[in-house]
Design a protein around this nucleic acid. Sequence first.
DNA 1: GTAGCTGCAAACTCTTTGCAACTCT
DNA 2: AGAGTTGCAAAGAGTTTGCAGCTAC
Lengths: 135, 135
Amino acid sequence: MMNDFEQRCAEADLKMTGQRRVILNVLDDAQDHPSVEEVLKRAKARDSSISMATVYRTLNLLDELGLVVRHEFKENFARYELNVTQHHHLIDVDTGAVIEFQSKEIEKIKRKIAKKLGYQLVECRLDLYGKKIEK
Amino acid sequence: MMNDFEQRCAEADLKMTGQRRVILNVLDDAQDHPSVEEVLKRAKARDSSISMATVYRTLNLLDELGLVVRHEFKENFARYELNVTQHHHLIDVDTGAVIEFQSKEIEKIKRKIAKKLGYQLVECRLDLYGKKIEK
DNA sequence: GTAGCTGCAAACTCTTTGCAACTCT
DNA sequence: AGAGTTGCAAAGAGTTTGCAGCTAC
């Protein structure tokens, strides 16, 4: 059964190989923001022949197509997630946990700011880093 | 003559070596957001004996102390700037030019969002990517 | 004097790539 | 069949680190 993402890959003239299907499914199932290594680990659980090189190549491809969002939080490696709905992140500085949030206000203001500076907004990233408030 | 940053380093119990002074001055003079390599290049122009290792070590130190802000725009290397006033960045997707801006509204909203999620804001990063609007 | 800093070069981590074999269409 | 994709291993880029000598305090 072909999901939305496989559909979009097909439209982009990407061959739907077994490896790509597995990687897409891994991302589709992920409730978090896995690193490349984590994607490989999960992909290997479904098809042990998948290599790191393919994971990197596939994630780069999906990034170029805009199907995936690449994050570089304050770590020295990238994390990925499917590009479903636009949202931002709050990272727990103690645990590294990532919380997603949306904000209509932010959307409005960032567009306003870009326009004031003479630019049309193409993309944006807002990462908050915080400490949990104890009760 | 000791500038503000040298003062703050002294308070942090950092030995004020010639190399550190040079690197601080390079950052202080910078109107842009230089990469490590660029910092080295500018530092070497003032003291040719300065090494890459020292630049990395110094920038990491300054980052830990919060004297410097480390950026990872959509490139695969870091850029630094002195931490003077809190501001955000708009990156021209065509030229790579970086424009700084401030926004009271954003400051207010981001704190509000963090609080709503049960967090106290420690840090934050907002990078807009845009295309220049032609007239 | 001594704890801390430095340059050098080697090591490390994450990511990319050349190549021959393989696979989707 | 043929262009695109893969795994492997080697290479690349950016960054870190062990060490012996040097320097600020």
